[in-house]
């Protein structure tokens, strides 16, 4: 794809990259100094060489460690394979039949679904509320912003261990409840299957809501001040302004945040794996597609099966991501993630 002649390329390449002015339709770029007229041919060669040298290493690393593994997963998914030697025991769609028939897999998909929905439902109102609050001109705003962001910067392992200790049966949370006279609400936060997923949601909200607040604040600050001035001249109340100006103009930010949140929820692994380990998660009702993949793939040595689970997980994520982009994000990200769209 990089072998075309440069002259033809600059004529045909008329799709703008994000954030640029479009240079006249198909017109040769007058401002391209790297193709001086007299030595056109050497310049072409030189340009191709430069492109190859500059982009080669990144493409090689990216294709080998991102694209190739995904293709390999699709290949190994058709084999019963223990991870060493060549894969010879071809089972066709066998692994996939097992996945779709396995009630444990149905459960993890359900858990992921719950996590996707509850992440949005829990974090969205809290984050909007906090962002509106912090968008006022108050003192110490940047300090508050930093402190709310701290949980996001701490690694999942630390969050998992800390919350795991706090929520265990004789842990700090139950102790605190008893101390303030709410001893009746003491519970097995992590092991009771009725409660565990809610505990997980609290931890997820605690860890990631700061990220949403930061994003929303940035979105709020890109809204032109004049709109608020005009509204206040027209006598709009604070809530009317938020309802009819702020929230609609925050739309693009909210939609992109929701996208990131959904994809993140579908891939959730670290927190569950650290708090519940590889076996307890399923009995506590917090196992996810990723922990299922690790437990039934690498841990049990069935790499063919693990690869097939990875493929299913990837396809579920991809379908959701593409659907979301097609129907929700399209107007926001035209030119960003979807440059191929014409």
């Amino acid at each position: 794809m990089r072998k075309e002649s440069a002259g033809a390329a600059s004529l045909t390449d008329e799709r703008p990259m994000p954030g640029t002015k479009k240079v006249g339709d198909g017109a040769p770029r007058a401002s391209s100094p790297a193709t001086p007229r007299p030595t056109r041919k050497t310049a072409d060669w030189r340009k191709r060489l430069e492109i190859t040298i500059l982009s080669g290493p990144a493409i090689i690393v990216f294709v080998s460690f991102v694209i190739l593994p995904v293709i390999l997963a699709a290949y190994y998914g058709f084999f019963r394979w223990k991870g060493y030697g060549p894969a010879t025991d071809f089972v066709g769609w066998g692994n996939y039949f097992i996945i779709f028939a396995d009630s444990a897999f149905h459960e993890v998909v359900l858990h992921n679904g719950i996590i996707v929905v509850l992440s949005l439902v829990f974090q969205l109102p809290v984050a909007i509320f906090l962002a509106l609050l912090l968008n006022q001109k108050i003192r110490g705003r940047s300090l508050i912003r930093v402190l709310i962001f701290v949980p996001y910067i701490i690694s999942e392992v630390i969050v998992g261990i800390g919350w795991g200790l706090m929520l265990q049966t004789n842990g700090a949370v139950n102790d605190l409840l008893a101390a303030v006279g709410l001893g009746a609400f003491r519970a097995d936060w992590l092991s009771d299957p009725k409660i565990a997923i809610w505990s997980l949601m609290v931890i997820i909200t605690w860890k990631y809501v700061g990220f949403a607040v930061i994003l929303f604040l940035a979105g709020l600050q890109s809204i032109p001040e004049e709109l608020f001035e005009a509204a206040s001249i027209d006598g709009a109340t604070y809530w009317q302004v938020q309802r009819h100006i702020t929230l609609p103009l925050l739309g693009p930010t909210l939609r992109i945040w929701a996208f990131l949140s959904i994809i993140g929820s579908l891939q959730l692994f670290d927190l569950v794996f650290i708090i519940w380990g590889q076996y307890v998660a399923s009995t506590a009702g917090t196992s996810t597609m990723a922990t299922y993949m690790v437990a039934n793939g690498r841990t049990s040595g069935n790499f063919g099966y693990g690869s097939a689970v990875a493929v299913v997980m990837f396809l579920i994520s991809l379908v959701i991501a593409l659907t979301y982009q097609r129907f929700v994000l399209r107007r926001d990200t035209a030119g960003a993630l979807t440059e191929r769209q014409k």
């Binding site: 794809m1 600059s10 045909t12 390449d13 493409i59 891939q267 997980m313 994520s317 440059e339 191929r340």
Partner: peptide
């Protein structure tokens, strides 16, 4: 400016869809 630039950009942008977990 060269043919395939948009495809190359899309290749990397698509990488956002391939989380390491998968």
């Amino acid at each position: 400016h060269f043919q395939g630039r948009a495809a190359m950009y899309s290749l990397f942008a698509a990488g956002l869809m391939f989380p390491m977990t998968v």
